[in-house]
Design a protein around this nucleic acid. Structure first.
Lengths: 163, 163
DNA sequence: CAGATCTCAGCTTTACTGACATCG
DNA sequence: CCGATGTCAGTAGAGCTGAGATCT
C-alpha cells in the first residue's frame, strides 16, 4: 500500500520544499527589517565564530565571494560591520561585527527564532534536535572541504532517546 | 563549551544550506538531460499521484500556477505530458504523463536517486528514513492548507521500527 | 610568474506579483 | 457579480561565471 511516492522519499526534493517554506517564513517575519536572511547569516557568523576576512567568511556561510561584497556593503553603510584592512596581508579585509551590529543581531535572532519555531510547530523538542543534527551532518562533508578545523564538537552519537 | 552557534541550531538556516547542496547535486547529475529539477517533480507527481489539472498540480508540488505554465510547455513539446481540456469544466486542462514521459522519468529518477545517495552519504539507512520522515512532517501542516483531501494516507504513526 | 583576494558586470534560474480573458 | 482557471509580463532575490586590479 505504499505506491512509491518518489518525491516523499527523496531528501533532495524535501529539502527544497522545506527550504522554500523556511525562506517564506523568514521573509514574513523580516518585513520592515530592511535586512534579509543572508545579512542575518553574516552577523550571526561574525558574532558566534569571530571576525574573518571575506573569503573564509563566504566559505563558512556557503556564499559566493562575489555575492558577499554587496551584502557587506549594506551592513557596512549601516555600521553593523566594519571592514578593516589586514596589516599582514594587504589583499585581505578583516570583517568584524560592531556593537550596534550585535544589537540588531539580537532583534533579528528573535525573528529567526520565531520563524524556526513556526516551521517546526509539528515536532517535539527532541525531534527538532534530531532534525537539526541530521541536517548538520548532511552538510558536514561538504563543509570539511571549506572549513579549516572548526568542527570537533560533534560527540558522534546522534542524540537518540526519542523517535 | 557550546558557544551558541546560532546558524547550526536553526533549521530554517540549515534547510537552506542543505537545499542549496541538493540543488547543486541534482544540477550536476542532470547535465545533458535538457530537463531540470521541477520537470522531474512534475513527472514524478503525475506518475505517482495521477493526473490533475494545473492548479491542483501546482499546489501539490509547491509551485506557483504561473510558473507551472512554461514548465508544462517544455514537457508538452517533448510529448512527455499531455494537456487535455476537461469536458466538465472548460476552464481546466487535465495534465497526464505519457508513456514516453514515464520512460524519461525512469532515467531522471535514477539521476535523482544518485544525487540523494550522494547527499546522504554520511547517514545510515535508518537515519535517512528518519530525516525524510521529519522533513515530511515539517511540510505537512503547510500542505494541508492547499491539498483538498489527499493526505489521509498518513496513519498518524510515523513509520518507526528503526532509529 | 603563479596564485590569492576583493570587486564588478552580466547572466540564469527561481519565486512572486499583478493583470487579463475565459468560464462556472 | 463573484470566484476559479490558465496565461502572460514584469520584478526581485539568489547563485554563478568571467574578468580585472591589487597584492603575496
Amino acid at each position: 500500500v505504499t505506491p512509491t511516492h518518489r518525491l516523499r522519499d527523496r531528501v533532495v526534493w524535501l529539502a527544497g520544499r522545506v527550504s522554500l517554506r523556511s525562506q517564506r517564513l523568514i521573509a514574513d517575519h523580516f518585513t520592515g527589517a530592511e535586512l534579509r536572511k543572508q545579512h542575518y547569516g553574516i552577523l550571526a557568523s561574525l558574532a558566534d565564530r569571530g571576525p574573518a576576512s571575506q573569503a573564509p567568511l563566504a566559505d563558512r556561510l556557503g556564499l559566493d565571494r562575489s555575492d558577499l561584497v554587496s551584502l557587506l556593503d549594506d551592513l557596512e553603510t549601516r555600521r553593523y560591520v566594519a571592514r578593516t584592512p589586514d596589516p599582514h596581508d594587504r589583499r585581505r579585509k578583516n570583517v568584524a561585527i560592531t556593537p550596534s551590529g550585535r544589537t540588531v543581531l539580537k532583534k533579528l535572532d528573535a525573528l529567526v527564532f520565531a520563524a524556526d519555531d513556526e516551521l517546526l510547530a509539528g515536532l517535539t523538542p527532541a525531534e527538532r534536535v534530531t532534525l537539526a543534527r541530521l541536517l548538520e551532518r548532511v552538510l558536514s562533508p561538504a563543509d570539511r572541504q571549506n572549513l579549516p578545523a572548526d568542527r570537533q564538537n560533534l560527540p558522534a552519537k546522534a542524540e537518540e532517546g526519542d523517535c
